[in-house]
Design a protein around this nucleic acid. Sequence first.
DNA 1: CATCAGAACTAATGGCATTAGGTTAGGGGA
DNA 2: TCCCCTAACCTAATGCCATTAGTTCTGATG
Lengths: 190, 190
Amino acid sequence: MSGRKGLSKNTVVDAAVALVEAEGSSALSLSRVARELGVEPPSLYNHVARLDTLRREVALRAFEDLGSTLGRAAMGRAGPEALRAIAADFRNYVRQHPGLYEISTVARPDDAAFQAAARSALEPVMAVLRIYDLDEDDAIHAARALRSALHGFVSLELAGGFGFDVEIDASFSWLVDHLAGMIEQPVARR
Amino acid sequence: MSGRKGLSKNTVVDAAVALVEAEGSSALSLSRVARELGVEPPSLYNHVARLDTLRREVALRAFEDLGSTLGRAAMGRAGPEALRAIAADFRNYVRQHPGLYEISTVARPDDAAFQAAARSALEPVMAVLRIYDLDEDDAIHAARALRSALHGFVSLELAGGFGFDVEIDASFSWLVDHLAGMIEQPVARR
DNA sequence: CATCAGAACTAATGGCATTAGGTTAGGGGA
DNA sequence: TCCCCTAACCTAATGCCATTAGTTCTGATG
């Protein structure tokens, strides 16, 4: 009655990614993925350990995806121009893949590999900073500030936290321009 | 066999808040709250419409709580000093109530009352900005930038996104100081 | 004291994750 | 070519959860 379906970890993750893209991160369940693949839910355990590891796999895909997007944006640019290009592409990515971004932001405190993947997705952002020739501490602080501001902005936007005003594009430009200025300011006043 | 337990919407929300504080936002379930209150799960439907509305109530509590915390921090201060105090208390609040903060950040796109509550919690932050006497557009942009940076920072910190370095306090100070500088810079270079 | 709203109950449904254990297909070795 | 054994799939079962329907009983109100 069954017949091999030829699934693999990759096929399963593919289906999960597609589901998240189409219906958001909360739609991801083993039952749902199984249904999509024409298989009974327990069969998936041959390919993923449990639901949470599938979520993790999906998040890792998101990091890869985001990382290569940002890498492309950085190519051939430097300084504030590169920063603006990367920031814009980051925001666009999140708006085009809200489910993937959301699932990649769930807290995974002691998962070092996951953290590393997250960091590597943002490597292009960090690369831009290196050009500014900051001292080591400032570089770390600036990197965190940049990540914070960009992540915070897109998260709030995604959550509808800015209301439905039209000005949001302008606010983002303002933010990015001021971030660029901020980085060049080695010492804060006071 | 039963006896009135004298529950009310408030008691239920109280129990939910306590649960979230103790075990995080993912521990919140009607079953769990019912158990805590010595009641069967369906009884809760006399006081809350469904699980999601309970989550919403808990989030609203978090906003009130955060708002009054920030209000206290702002009292008697102005300018960069007020900003630093508010930012510090904001971060402390989130670190002391991670579950509450987390549950208050789930997206509720078309819930206007919820958005309003969120905004009003951040009213003290906005008040600080008014002192800087920015023109209207700049004020909006600066407010959003401030919210983004602070929210982004604490979210990433909560998610373990900064690794376990000790430097995080310094990074936060750096961020806040530079934000203060950024606000005073009415026009971005370039 | 009688009534009635509503607070709590039990019973039931259906979705979900997950485990245990059985069956069979199909690739690798003889 | 045939066999065999691994692993991919299955069914059955457990236990958690949210939610609805319908029932009971209590305590405040007249």
